[in-house]
Amino acid sequence: MRDDNDPTTMQQLLDQIRASSEGLEHVPVANILEAVGERSFGPVVLLAGLITIAPLIGDIPGVPTLLGMVVVLTLGQLLFRRHSIWLPGWISGRQVPRGKLVKGVDWLQRPARFLDRITKPRLTCLVNGPGLYVMALICIAVALAMPAMELVPFSANGGGAALMAFGLAIVVRDGLVALIATTITGLTLWFITSSLIL
């Protein structure tokens, strides 16, 4: 499910997002999606996770649930073996002010360089073939739990971290990151369940 133009590192992903904003005052979501590769399921999940854990943005009521819907729509298409991502017009037509987009990309440069140094293709059986579909199912489970996460303080941050890690694992083909993401998912779901029961 990877195109030759799809990013293979965090740095490439950020560079392509920045390039999508050139010459525009407001950047449509469709432009960002096209820039990172229309078959790039990983970057979409990664971005959803990043936005969910971002200070101020991810704390806005309804945002985690909206991002969960994007993840379900995106990875649902992966499970049905679509070769490109389709999003409804009301999502793909949304626009982001270029200034905020560039500021966010600049802020992420240092973490991206760090992640690129410690990630690499390994345990690729966990992120290719059947392993990719298992990850997609886990991500969908996290996304479907987002409404409940909005009721439990700080749990959406765990869900966002899990989605970010899964997206990163898909982008860089790192099975170790996929295992870490699975652990984060388990801990987050346990925390939500415990909080709701108590």
Results as ranks from 00 to 15, higher is better:
residue 74 T to G: 05
residue 76 G to I: 12
residue 187 L to A: 14
residue 64 P to F: 07
residue 6 D to Y: 01
residue 24 L to R: 11
residue 102 V to M: 13
residue 140 I to G: 01
residue 164 M to K: 00
residue 51 I to R: 01
residue 82 R to E: 14
residue 172 V to Q: 06
residue 35 A to W: 07
residue 41 F to N: 00
residue 121 P to V: 11
residue 132 L to P: 00
residue 1 M to C: 06
residue 172 V to W: 02
residue 119 T to G: 01
residue 181 A to N: 09
residue 60 I to T: 15
residue 25 E to H: 06
residue 160 G to H: 09
residue 137 L to R: 13
residue 157 N to M: 09
residue 107 W to H: 07
residue 175 G to S: 10
residue 197 I to T: 08
residue 173 R to M: 12
residue 49 G to A: 07
residue 79 L to T: 09
residue 147 P to M: 08
residue 83 H to V: 03
residue 53 I to C: 03
residue 68 G to S: 09
residue 198 L to T: 14
residue 74 T to C: 12
residue 126 L to M: 14
residue 145 A to E: 07
residue 4 D to Q: 12
residue 61 P to W: 13
residue 16 Q to H: 14
residue 7 P to F: 07
residue 115 L to Q: 04
residue 62 G to F: 11
residue 143 A to H: 04
residue 2 R to H: 08
residue 121 P to C: 12
residue 2 R to G: 01
residue 120 K to M: 12
residue 77 Q to D: 11
residue 117 R to E: 10
residue 33 L to T: 01
residue 84 S to P: 00
residue 180 I to M: 09
residue 86 W to Q: 05
residue 148 A to Y: 04
residue 184 I to Q: 08
residue 153 P to E: 13
residue 164 M to G: 11
residue 78 L to V: 08
residue 53 I to L: 13
residue 136 A to C: 06
residue 159 G to N: 02
residue 177 V to M: 15
residue 99 G to Y: 02
residue 48 A to H: 00
residue 67 L to V: 10
residue 114 F to V: 10
residue 139 C to G: 12
residue 51 I to T: 11
residue 2 R to P: 00
residue 150 E to W: 07
residue 138 I to E: 07
residue 156 A to T: 05
residue 150 E to H: 07
residue 119 T to M: 08
residue 141 A to G: 14
residue 99 G to A: 13
residue 184 I to L: 15
residue 181 A to K: 01
residue 50 L to D: 02
residue 128 N to S: 14
residue 185 T to S: 11
residue 179 L to A: 05
residue 122 R to P: 03
residue 20 S to H: 03
residue 191 F to N: 09
residue 8 T to Q: 10
residue 179 L to G: 08
residue 120 K to C: 06
residue 40 S to L: 05
residue 167 G to A: 09
residue 165 A to T: 13
residue 4 D to R: 13
residue 179 L to N: 08
residue 91 I to Y: 03
residue 22 E to N: 06
residue 55 P to K: 14
residue 22 E to W: 00
residue 110 R to F: 09
residue 166 F to I: 12
residue 73 L to P: 00
residue 61 P to Y: 10
residue 131 G to N: 02
residue 45 V to Y: 01
residue 25 E to F: 07
residue 7 P to H: 06
residue 103 K to S: 15
residue 168 L to I: 12
residue 193 T to C: 04
residue 115 L to H: 08
residue 59 D to E: 15
residue 156 A to W: 05
residue 125 C to L: 15
residue 146 M to G: 00
residue 19 A to G: 04
residue 125 C to E: 13
residue 5 N to D: 14
residue 97 P to W: 05
residue 124 T to N: 02
residue 77 Q to A: 09
residue 32 I to G: 05
residue 129 G to Q: 06
residue 55 P to D: 14
residue 21 S to Q: 08
residue 178 A to R: 05
residue 80 F to V: 05
residue 137 L to W: 06
residue 93 G to A: 04
residue 6 D to C: 13
residue 12 Q to C: 03
residue 9 T to A: 10
residue 149 M to P: 01
residue 115 L to W: 04
residue 141 A to K: 13
residue 141 A to L: 15
residue 109 Q to E: 15
residue 153 P to S: 14
residue 135 M to F: 02
residue 138 I to K: 06
residue 163 L to N: 02
residue 190 W to N: 08
residue 191 F to E: 04
residue 65 T to D: 05
residue 30 A to T: 10
residue 175 G to L: 14
residue 63 V to M: 10
residue 117 R to Y: 06
residue 98 R to E: 10
residue 122 R to N: 09
residue 105 V to L: 12
residue 40 S to H: 15
residue 10 M to D: 02
residue 138 I to Q: 04
residue 37 G to Q: 03
residue 42 G to P: 00
residue 76 G to F: 07
residue 128 N to L: 14
residue 172 V to M: 06
